[in-house]
Structures are given as C-alpha cells and as structure tokens.
Amino acid sequence: MKKQVGILVDTTQCIGCMACEDACADRWGFPHTDVHELSCEKNTVVQQYGQTYVARLCMHCEEPTCASVCPVGAIHKTASGPVVYDVDKCMGCRYCVQACPFQIPKYQWNKPAPKVTKCDMCYPRQLEGKQPACVEACPAQARVFGYRDDLIEEAKKRIKNNPGTYVQHIFGTTEVGGTSTIYLAGEDFGKLGFPTNLPKRALPKYTWDIMEKIPDYFVWGSTLMAGFWWLTNRKKKVAEYEDELKRGRTEPDELEIKEQTSGGKDAK
C-alpha cells in the first residue's frame, strides 16, 4: 500500500488567527466570513472552547463512512489518503451527510443543482507537490502535513517531551478504525467538541456484516423458494388426483368403467 499522508492538528499550539480559514476559502473560492461553523461555504473552521482553539476539517478516515454509504461511489479514499468527492457521479441522496460520524460533509441546500462540500485535504494541490492550503498558511505549527505514520511518531514525541501539556491520547488513532487527520489536545477531547462515543470499529463494518451475506442469501433463498413451489405444487397435484379417484368411485358410471379396467380391485 502506498504511504498515507495526513494532517496533525495540535490544538495546544493554535493561536486562533484564522489564517487557515482564509487560505481554505481562497482555495475553494468561498467568501471570507466570521462564522466559525462548517457549512457549504466553509471546509475548515477554527472554534474556540475556553482558552483552546480547535480546528475542524474532514478527518479523512482510514475507512470512510461517507464513501462506504455512497450508492454511486461519488466519494472515495485516494490511495495516498485524502477522501475526495466527485459531483458528476453524485445523485444528491445526502446519505454521506447523514452517516459521517464527524458531521463533515455539508450540502448546498439553496441551489437547484446542489453539491456536497467537504475538505479534500487539497488533493489537487498535493498532486502538484504542494501542501494543503491551511497547513501552508498556519504560522504556529498547529497544523502539520506529512506521512501519517511520521505524524503519529511526531505526536507521540510531543506528548512525551511535554507530559504536562497534553492528555495521553492522540485522537484519530483508534476512533472508527483510525483517521488521517489526527489531533493532540491539552484537555479532555469531549470538552473540545469531539464525539466521545465512537466505537473503535470502522463504521462501514456494521453494514458490511449484513451486506456481505446478500449474494449467498439470494442464491440459497431463491433455490429454497423454488423448492417450496415444487413441494406445494406436487402436494396440490396429488390432492387433485386423489380427489378425482374418490369422485370416480362415488359416481356409478365411472365406477363400472374402473371395475372393468382395474379388474375390480378397488371396487366397494
């Protein structure tokens, strides 16, 4: 497998200058605003929790829920890590918006031909050999771009060297099977607006448990149904035949004929 890239967000380093928000808006052609909520015009934001600034962006999950639920494969995880969206495939069912455990994909609700919007880790820029716009703009080393394995090492090092500064957890290493965007924090992640009830298991697996059985079910199920048809059909035929015989016995004309042909074996 190709080496995966990712972004390390160190919330203890963020100074809340919003340079990343503006760089992201420029990259997408979105307006600069003071609203710090993800929306169809904001693919990354910085939110304040007490003294701490927390950057929000797509987590680029190792096994993305959005990609697994999309009926037409409009979202996929690239070999190098970023999770990207293709509007030409999208039919607008918004299952990705519904299913994402981090509520990242947003929708253009007020357009007649709407798109899903989400951070793509500046995949097109990466192809040109550049860093994501938000990382490039960050003056404080609060966002670091690199190979995911290296970033985890870096995060571990920061925790080890500054034991008082950080909580002992790198968010994104265990949640929903792991994410390419990982976080360091100086206080409980739950207090910084992170979901704390996420399973370690990748969410797509919960569906796949059932979905993977479908081909077998279809083959065995239809065979079984055909079998039931055959059985009940035969039962019905036999019943009809017996009925005929019975009626034959009770009607005198037929009885005579039967007696002649069968040598009177069954005659009463």
């Binding site: 697994s68 639920v69 009926p71 494969g73 039919m91 299952y95 929708y107 059932i210």
Partner: peptide
C-alpha cells in the same frame, strides 16, 4: 434527491458496500 437527473447512476456506478446502492 438533490440531483434527481442522476437517479439512474447506481445502474452503472457501483458500490456494493452501500445499502442505498
């Protein structure tokens, strides 16, 4: 559907992981 003119897409664009598919 936001883009109902693409309703036929599951016919040719497959994702067997999705219950919606």
């Amino acid at each position: 559907l936001g883009r109902p003119w693409n309703i036929w897409h599951p016919l040719v664009m497959w994702n067997p992981h999705s219950p919606m598919f």
